[in-house]
């Protein structure tokens, strides 16, 4: 049976819309699930906060988790898998990647401010026993360097190839550090469901990166 060209195009559009809807739906579910963690698996630190302090700490935890999800999305966008390229087109993916990067930085900034404020900015968690928090500080610096160096690469005089190599390396380092930070800093992630969820999310990102990179390498070899 031969379908008319118009109908084929309509079908393709429908499949595209369906795929985009699935991606958006999946993201909404993941974000919803992450936001529910500070409520369902409330940390003991939250038990001992009252009033504004409690609101700030919970908001800080939520912004932190949002930043984590967007960081995962950021890495998936950065590797530009065939599936996403076909769906959105390369320029859209790169635009999304840039906007998402700034959003991650803003969320990280909010997270740091809201989490530290209840204990006081003069009472910072510094020292060996606060190593998971210090991993968070390193992450904050990495995200800051990545965003600033991307936005002002030319003004800062970074050569593209060198910048790209460093940017990529820092991105993968951030993925590892964010998993360590969340797993060890948050009491909510001592529970098996959030812990498993996070590990599964990191594993998914790693698998996607690995598959895209392997496919790209095979394509290069064939050429």
């Amino acid at each position: 049976m031969v379908m008319p060209k118009n109908s084929q195009s309509n079908n393709r559009q429908l499949v595209r819309k369906l795929r985009i809807s699935c991606i958006i739906g999946f993201l909404v579910i993941v974000i919803g699930g992450a936001i529910s963690i500070p409520f369902i698996y409330e940390s003991q630190t939250l038990w001992y906060k009252i009033g504004v302090d409690k609101t700030m700490l919970r908001a800080g935890q939520i912004t932190g988790l949002l930043a984590v999800i967007l960081l995962f999305v950021q890495i998936i966008l950065a590797v530009r898998g065939k599936f996403l390229q076909e769906l959105f087109g390369l320029p859209s993916l790169m635009r999304w990647h840039r906007v998402n990067g700034v959003l991650v930085f803003v969320l990280v900034l909010c997270h740091v401010t809201l989490v530290l404020a209840p204990e006081g900015f003069l009472n910072l968690p510094i020292g060996m026993k606060y190593w998971p928090e210090l991993v968070g500080l390193i992450l904050f610096l990495i995200v800051f360097v990545m965003v600033v160096s991307s936005l002002f690469r030319q003004q800062l005089g970074f050569a593209y190839i060198r910048w790209r190599t460093i940017h990529k390396s820092l991105g993968y380092l951030a993925l590892v550090l964010v998993a360590i930070h969340v797993l060890f800093v948050s009491e909510s992630f001592e529970h098996s469901i959030p812990r498993t969820g996070l590990i599964a999310a990191v594993a998914t990102v790693v698998i996607i990166v690995f598959r895209v990179k392997t496919a790209a390498l095979q394509k290069k070899r064939k050429q």
Partner: peptide, 18 residues
């Protein structure tokens, strides 16, 4: 417990910074 220590150092208890 590191987090409890940080809370004890806050203005809620010792207010160590001040």
């Amino acid at each position: 417990i590191a987090k409890r220590d940080k809370h004890l150092q806050s203005a809620d208890f010792f207010d160590s910074a001040k």
